[in-house]
Simulated scan of single mutants.
Amino acid sequence: MGTHLITGAGSGIGAAVARRLAARGEELWLLARNAVRAKELAEQFPGAKMLVGDLATPERLSWAFGQQPLPDRLDSLQHIAGVIELGAVGDLPAKAWQRQLAANLVAPAEITRLMLPMVRLAQGHVVFVNSGAGLHANAQWGAYAASKHGLKALADSLRAEEHGNAVRVTSVYPGRTATPMQESTHQQEGKEYDPSRWIDPESVASTVLAAIDLPRDAEINDVSVRPGR
Rank of each mutant, 00 (worst) to 15 (best):
F128R: 09
G134L: 09
S131Q: 03
A145L: 00
A133S: 12
V167R: 03
A146N: 04
V169R: 08
M115R: 07
Q182D: 15
L151G: 11
L214H: 03
L214R: 05
R216D: 15
I111Y: 10
K148M: 09
V204E: 11
P195S: 07
G164S: 13
P215D: 13
A122N: 02
K191V: 00
K191N: 00
P117M: 06
R216Y: 10
W198R: 04
A178G: 02
H125K: 04
D194T: 02
A178L: 01
T177V: 10
N130G: 11
N138P: 00
L151P: 10
P117N: 05
A211P: 05
D213W: 06
L114H: 09
M118N: 15
N165C: 14
A218K: 11
L158W: 11
A137M: 03
R113C: 11
S131L: 04
I212S: 02
T170A: 09
T170V: 06
A211W: 03
L209T: 08
R168A: 06
E192N: 06
T185Y: 05
S147I: 04
L116P: 11
L116T: 11
V127H: 06
E192F: 01
F128E: 15
M181A: 15
T112D: 14
S171D: 09
G164Y: 07
H136P: 03
P117Y: 05
D213C: 12
L135M: 11
R159A: 15
T112W: 08
T185I: 14
K152G: 14
I199A: 01
A218D: 14
V126K: 08
T179H: 07
E189C: 00
Y173N: 09
G190D: 01
R168L: 05
V204W: 03
A155G: 14
L158Y: 12
G164E: 14
V169W: 12
D217G: 13
H136M: 11
D194C: 01
Y144L: 02
Q187W: 00
K191C: 00
H186A: 08
R113Y: 09
V129G: 08
E192C: 02
V167K: 04
E202T: 14
L214Q: 07
A139F: 02
A160V: 06
S147W: 04
P201G: 08
S206H: 11
A122Y: 00
V169K: 09
M115D: 13
A139K: 02
S184K: 06
A139C: 03
A166T: 08
Q140C: 00
A155Q: 06
T207F: 02
P180F: 08
A153Q: 05
P215N: 10
V129N: 14
P174S: 12
V204D: 12
L151C: 10
A210R: 04
T170L: 08
G175S: 01
Q187Y: 00
S196F: 02
E162S: 14
H136W: 06
S171M: 07
R197V: 05
G124F: 03
N165T: 12
L158P: 12
V119M: 07
S196R: 08
T185E: 15
P195V: 05
G132Y: 01
D200T: 12
G134Y: 05
L114P: 12
Y144R: 00
H136F: 10
G142P: 01
D194V: 04
A205V: 09
A205Y: 07
P117Q: 05
